[in-house]
């Protein structure tokens, strides 16, 4: 890619950034003043990490850094060198809360997600779904594989129908 640089402004330095994103070692050249959110979206291809408010109020940009939730819009990417980052795309194995406490109370759930603004649900359903997820984890229930076969359009008839 052609480099376009602004001649009149002091330039940030570059550094080699080496992190683990969702279990994969990633090495990128980033600008020393880059924000983690921008690096994740624009360079690492994690478009699931969203920009919502730019100031740490909405929680859209949350990622886990070494297992702890963190707002990527308020995080300097350079500081994350060598860390393990989990984005929404890598969350299949469970949320930070549930990994530490698989039977949280409603209050614990509320505290865990208090940094997120949600404009659709009114939060109640998020609490319900975390509760449902904790049930699945505790009871060791299987979740259907999304790639398993869908319905047969040519079903047979069973007596008793």
């Amino acid at each position: 890619m052609v480099e376009f640089r602004l001649p009149m402004l002091p330039q940030p330095g570059e550094l080699v950034w080496s992190v683990n994103i969702n279990g994969t070692e990633v090495k990128l050249n980033i600008e020393s003043n880059a924000i983690l959110l921008d690096v994740l979206r624009d360079q690492a291809g994690s478009l699931g990490t969203k920009r919502g408010c730019d100031m740490g109020t909405c929680g859209c940009c949350s990622v886990l850094v070494d297992g702890e939730p963190r707002l990527s819009c308020l995080t300097l990417a350079a500081d994350m060198n060598g860390r393990e980052i989990t984005t929404v795309e890598g969350l299949a194995n469970g949320h930070q809360l549930l990994s530490q406490n698989n039977n949280p109370t409603n209050e614990e759930i509320k505290t865990a997600i208090e940094g997120n603004l949600c404009r659709c649900t009114g939060f109640q359903q998020i609490v319900d779904s975390i509760r449902a997820a904790s049930d699945i984890i505790r009871e060791n229930n299987d979740i259907e594989d999304s790639t398993s076969a869908k319905s047969d359009p040519h079903p047979g008839f069973m007596e008793g129908n």
């Binding site: 398993s148 076969a149 869908k150 319905s151 047969d152 359009p153 040519h154 079903p155 047979g156 008839f157 069973m158 008793g160 129908n161």
Partner: peptide, 15 residues
């Protein structure tokens, strides 16, 4: 063969 056949729930559920 019937193209498109196959998949889960191979019997129609009673009403």
């Amino acid at each position: 063969s019937k193209p498109g056949s196959g998949g889960k729930n191979s019997f129609s559920k009673p009403i």
